[in-house]
Nucleic acid binder design. Structure first.
Lengths: 241, 241
DNA sequence: GCTCCTGTTTGATTTTGATCAAGCAAATGC
DNA sequence: GCATTTGCTTGATCAAAATCAAACAGGAGC
């Protein structure tokens, strides 16, 4: 932090993106200094209030983003309004779909967030000449694919109770991976969002929370703050032995 | 088949993999002739009867494969035996999880199939020096991710009838993409597999088939051969407007 | 031919989660 | 202060799909 960009450069070329400062380990981490400079010219840091849409379903992708802080939900909606959250992205995840111009999903800030936006065209051009960058994006895609498939098992085969427990376990392990104690955290999603993630209704989610609370699997304060006294016990409730 | 490896070797460098002959447009299509020769030395063509496992959940990945013919299902099982199909792969799809040694899913031939197996180590090495190859694998991963997310909406938010109709639509559009008429085909999956793909029981799948048949959305002969008189109508039943 | 499988269908009943409907508590506006 | 809104919980009822159970049809083996 105390190292200023100007200091570490030969001819004053910034080695970190001016917008996000590359502290977060996103795609910029795979770039050489001059590639970073190039991308940095087309980057803007953006604060998002919870609920702000990053991109809508069916819209043209003109930007990619890195998440610097916060949680972004990826959603798909049906014509009649039924909605499914198909992914949750945490810092320093990448948001965007390389090689396609139209977004098949919407992305929306679930919590107050900060993202680093950069031009699609510029990154696409950089990808062509930077194998290391494509490798990074490839790994990100594979990570999301693994997560999606894990979640398919949850959606298709788990009971409401197992689904809610699985969700809590997911959040506990993702919300703050640096933290030593992952057993106490604020839920990044409302009950409605949790329902959309789990393929349930808000009433069912609420009832399962109550049930888990009564069985002392979780403690809840102010509707949003959750404490897990026994993570292994939660895992068993989630059906993951 | 009548071209023997020995014939096309030494000075005549083969431009196709000896095992799969690269007719299928799999990863080999992204390789240069000498890369192909290298990979070809560590490739074997393999016939799989329906039900044969390609790799088990939790096993170490020592090989990747290309599907030459047939349908391969990707499954995840829970400790108590509940099972979910998390992906269906058709020729010329790639099977494998680059950059991870342990497979989080099982792969099993759903129909009689042929695959081209090649050494993981060799392909991994080639990937490092062939950006075009990593690009190909990256696109494959993104395609599978798009499909997985589409299916999450189906699993989480659709009714049994919509799920079955969605499955039929998926098969119609994937089983033989070259064919002009995609409205008549053999189901590559048993009712039990379909249930595992849709997060339903076999009884529910069977009842929905009967219902769709009675409403003339589909015709079925010999339990496996399906004809779709009106694809748009099926799509409406699937909830895709 | 027959019997034994296996995969599928159909029927009766139960269970789970959805729906419909209040109620409640904290936050926001006036 | 009080009314309103918003997000969540709780209760009563309903419907969809699961479960339990039986029957059926086509093949394989004898």
């Amino acid at each position: 932090m105390e190292i200023r960009r100007q200091d570490i450069h030969s001819s004053d070329v910034p080695v970190v993106c001016k917008a996000c400062e590359a502290r977060h380990g996103g795609v910029c981490a795979a770039l050489s200094p001059d590639q970073l400079l190039e991308l940095s010219k087309h980057s803007t840091r953006q604060r998002l209030e919870a609920g702000t849409e990053v991109i809508g379903q069916g819209e043209t992708v003109t930007n990619y983003s890195n998440i610097i802080r916060g949680v972004v939900k990826l959603t798909k909606v049906m014509a009649d309004g039924r909605q499914q959250i198909v992914g949750l992205q945490f810092a320093p995840d990448f948001i965007g779909r390389p090689f396609l111009t139209e977004s098949a999903i919407a992305a929306e800030a679930a919590t107050d967030s900060e993202i680093c936006n950069f031009s699609r065209g510029v990154l696409d051009r950089l990808v062509k000449n930077a194998p290391e960058l494509e490798h990074k994006l490839h790994r990100q895609a594979l990570k999301e694919l693994d997560e999606a498939r894990d979640w398919m098992l949850t959606l298709g085969r788990k009971s409401a109770q197992e689904k809610v427990a699985s969700f809590l376990y997911l959040i506990a392990t993702h919300i703050d991976p640096e933290s030593v104690d992952t057993s106490s955290f604020d839920l990044p999603l409302s009950r409605a969002d949790i329902a959309d993630f789990l393929g349930l209704t808000i009433e069912t989610v609420s009832r399962q929370f109550t049930k888990l609370r009564k069985e002392n699997v979780i403690h809840i304060e102010n509707n949003r703050h959750v404490t897990i006294p026994d993570m292994d016990r939660l895992m068993r409730y989630a059906g993951n032995d």
